[in-house]
Design a protein around this nucleic acid. Structure first.
Lengths: 345, 345
DNA sequence: TATTAGCACTTCGCTATTATGAGTGCTAAT
DNA sequence: ATTAGCACTCATAATAGCGAAGTGCTAATA
């Protein structure tokens, strides 16, 4: 067996590969040489196509489930398809209209917008859509409120620039005067800086606080912990879509999808870890490190509040999906969200 | 065909019915006359048992999937089983211990407790567990905070006696002084009364407020709306459990369960409507008004903060479930939650 | 009269067999 | 390099056969 000279696919091969994947995405059935010629006006004989297919298989782009079956793409095959062939294609005008309308009807609660966005993603993709709330760590602090709810419990309420509201109770007691002092001080020194920054700086600030007392330092530490501990929210929608997919015969991957969606902490962790780079991220099957995701594709992108990328949104579906459409859907929806934040200002 | 004389089952029939349901729950397979005699030491011949089974079928308690198959219970059959045969059976000590331990490790965030409770329900039942957060309407007001977050947006934060924190933005602007006045006033006049009550009374209170201004009245109205609009939260866990059930062969009901769990608003509505009576509620299959739930059983009970029933919790699973065990599980978990609220005081 | 033994009958689920057809790989000819 | 031709493979579908499980009915029995 000779070594394959080059990873660069010759044009004709590329065309065959593309056609196979396209056809497979459409029908879900292994693609044979004849069908290919019929439907994709390829001016070659079946035998020639078969040769090329055998080639592509040798190079790892295709496989076939059994000897006498047609070809199906491997993850590597999907990958080159995505890399080389898919141009971000403007989303159908009609659907763009639909998205816009959805947004206009909503009022200004950020939570509603995010949840609605995940619904839009799932609705238009027919897969599972998700939106991670603006990452509190990157978000600026807008306001801090303190409320003494019992003799032992102090409620800390944090408002961020994106409009998120986070709250947490800690064990502490402050007199009314102390409370007002601390609150005003915190707001004065932390307003505008990011939560991550605040977490680091709060202690040193407190020490410079003229009226500082031992008690304050102790509480400041706890508040610092609160900043550190903030859990990111995620909005997931359309898990049930997947059950409806006509060709989702693979019960195992359905199972793992449902499980994955339910375990939000894990979900968030994975997304934060593997999908935080700019542009459209596509991870196909085994490209996802998690074994449970080996039969699924995840497409994400980031969205921004001004210049700062604050969150991630995307869809999860079967490997066999319409990549072009889905990638441009994800891209579009993120643009809408960017615009929402811009308009809000 | 003569009319069936009486709906009151004779003792022997009852025993047969009970045995059939028990066996069917265990195995998931239609139950025949021989197996019944072997395993439930019934001192009758197979033929006699068959007669009785035919009887029970005529009366609507049993059915069989095809001519030569054994019997399976109808919804009506399950129902009499639940009504007549199931005694609330104390939960296995070992499992009680497990629940307790789960609680002790948790700190005092009510949200954590509720979410954990739904996890316990699902974990111990292997079905889907859910807990509705204390119904804000029944809950007492503990504290109201107002924060002016922009020139146009006023954030209202509501703390309830159960420890829930609800917030909502409204369009309004108040000067610092106004804000403090209004906040203090609201707290003084509303603290302790229920949210539902507050919604009704807030306007009349405001009018009596000495320093009242036109502006206040307008805002008070909006706040009143906020009280009215409060959405109840629900914690659902273990949707994925159901996919794991070895015998959950019915794809349709799996689908509807997943869909139902995803549509939380609908979920909340149904639960609030059909499961708000005291004691253990059991709705079997078609007893649930929703067609999607016709193959599922829902078991719920209420839990209390002091004397006031504030929320509902329960499980959803296949009709073929271990009713005794599940009913006592639900009952137990609600007791634990009652105790949690009591201890918190 | 209630119960039982006996038996014919029904249906399912399983296995084996066979046919079909889609699709391949290889070879030899162009 | 491409193609026509052909033998071969394997999944899928259809068919038939058979045993097991279980019923309903009838006639005998306590």
């Amino acid at each position: 067996m000779r070594h394959v000279a080059s990873e660069i696919l010759k044009e004709r091969k590329t065309k065959i590969l593309s056609a196979i994947i396209h056809q497979y995405i459409k029908t879900g059935k292994p693609v044979g040489s004849n069908i290919l010629i019929e439907k994709y006006n390829i001016s070659l004989s079946p035998a020639a196509v078969r040769n090329l297919m055998a080639n592509l298989e040798e190079e790892g782009y295709l496989t076939h489930p059994h000897t006498s079956a047609g070809r199906i793409p491997t993850d590597k095959g999907y990958r080159t398809y995505v890399n080389n062939l898919v141009k971000l294609q403007s989303f159908a005008v009609e659907e763009e209209g639909r998205i816009k309308k959805e947004y206009e009807q909503k009022h200004n609660e950020i939570e509603t917008i995010l949840s609605e966005t995940s619904r839009i993603l799932s609705g238009l993709s027919q897969y599972t859509g998700f939106v991670m709330a603006p990452k509190a760590q990157y978000d600026g602090i807008k306001n801090i409120e303190l409320v003494q709810i019992t003799k032992h419990q102090l409620l800390i309420i944090l408002l961020t620039n994106s409009g998120l509201i986070k709250h947490k109770k800690i064990d502490a007691f402050l007199t009314q005067t102390q409370l007002v002092h601390l609150r005003d001080f915190l707001n004065k020194s932390l307003r505008g800086i990011s939560v991550a920054q605040a977490n680091k700086e709060i202690i040193s600030h407190i020490i410079n606080f003229k009226q500082h007392e031992e008690e304050f330092l102790r509480i400041a530490e706890k508040i610092s912990d609160v900043f550190y501990d903030i859990q990111d929210d995620i909005y997931i929608d359309g898990t049930s879509n997947v059950v409806e997919l006509p060709n989702f015969n693979d019960f195992e991957s359905l199972k793992s999808l449902i499980k994955f969606n339910e375990n939000k902490e894990k979900f968030i962790k994975i997304i934060n870890k593997d999908f935080n780079s700019n542009g459209i991220n596509v991870k196909i099957g085994s490209e996802n490190m998690l074994d449970e995701l080996k039969d699924l594709t995840i497409i994400t992108t980031v969205y921004k509040n001004g210049e700062q990328a604050v969150g991630i949104l995307g869809i999860i579906g079967p490997k066999r999906m319409e990549y072009q459409k889905m990638m441009s859907l994800v891209s579009h929806v993120s643009e809408m969200l960017n615009k929402f934040f811009k308009d809000k200002k």
